[in-house]
Write a protein that binds this DNA or RNA. Sequence first.
DNA 1: CTTGACCTTGGATTAAACTCCAAGGTTTAT
DNA 2: ATAAACCTTGGAGTTTAATCCAAGGTCAAG
Lengths: 170, 170
Amino acid sequence: MYRIGELASLCEVKPDTLRFYEKHGLLAPSSRSESGYRVYSDADLSRLKFILRAKAVGFSLNEITELLSIELNKAEWACADVKGMVDDKLEQVSAKIAELLVFQDSLKRLSDACCGGPESAEHCSILEALETNRQVQAEHHAGFTPVADNKNLKASLAISAANKGKSSCC
Amino acid sequence: MYRIGELASLCEVKPDTLRFYEKHGLLAPSSRSESGYRVYSDADLSRLKFILRAKAVGFSLNEITELLSIELNKAEWACADVKGMVDDKLEQVSAKIAELLVFQDSLKRLSDACCGGPESAEHCSILEALETNRQVQAEHHAGFTPVADNKNLKASLAISAANKGKSSCC
DNA sequence: CTTGACCTTGGATTAAACTCCAAGGTTTAT
DNA sequence: ATAAACCTTGGAGTTTAATCCAAGGTCAAG
Ligand SMILES: [Zn+2]
Ligand SMILES: [Zn+2]
Ligand SMILES: [Zn+2]
Ligand SMILES: [Zn+2]
């Protein structure tokens, strides 16, 4: 049995957050002390962990409410329903990744086209590209690395910083 | 040249959104008609597209403002500044991609572990994974083994009889 | 018996990014 | 010429997920 502060620190959230969850029907303490303190059971702890896990995996509180309603009455739902929800989320995430990769690519092109020197940016090719929205040419050799890799990213940045004169705006 | 509604429907946003962007310094129409209507140019359209693309991949409007603000006072910036900003964004994008890939992976594992059939979700491995702390195994084809539950052996057998050979929860 | 840490409530505030509204002015089409 | 469909403005409301505040009640320690 836990008081609100105990449960909160146990799960690394704030008491206010638990009251918020209660107000929104996600998690109510299974009892109250004589003096009115919220008292959470281990089942409540499990439920909170469920909520936090789902949240960590990117579900909104509304979606989690939906998941919890399945949890409460599993027998009335099919695997298809549950899987459908996850697959929807998966599709959203994949779409977002695809968009990010496009954006990463255009930022890379912008970066590569700029000399990065101390000169006035008046003729900076990045700014020119932003103003005119002219696409900066993709570098034939650079290709497009689809996976985030900070080591490679830093290396490539270091390299492009090193050949200032080569691919520059100024 | 576009009026606000034209530009809005062209980019699938609402006129209100464009007024909001204007109020917050992201996109001002390059002129006004005699009667005071906002008139957007193709450059404005391009700028809007940039904004929307950046937004679509998770940049806040503040970040987008920062990125676009370089353009306004070019002379006060050096190429190094501009490029540094772009490179910062690039790093952020890469970090976001990495995060999303992890998320995508865990969703995939959840999805793969579920049969997705019309059976009761009582033993759905997605729900089990959310209920427990156990990670769904990566990659190993039949890796996910549901917790032994002899109580529901009968149901379990019935369901697996209905299953078409997929590695699944049921 | 007082201090301090905890708890209660309702309500206010935050932040981002819209979204809607009222009360009018303008264009366009029939 | 009059309605429909735009546009203008300022301001208020919405959503999500908290977070904070005020005013007070409870509890263990010194
Ligand atoms: Zn430059
Ligand atoms: Zn330069
Ligand atoms: Zn199943
Ligand atoms: Zn399932």
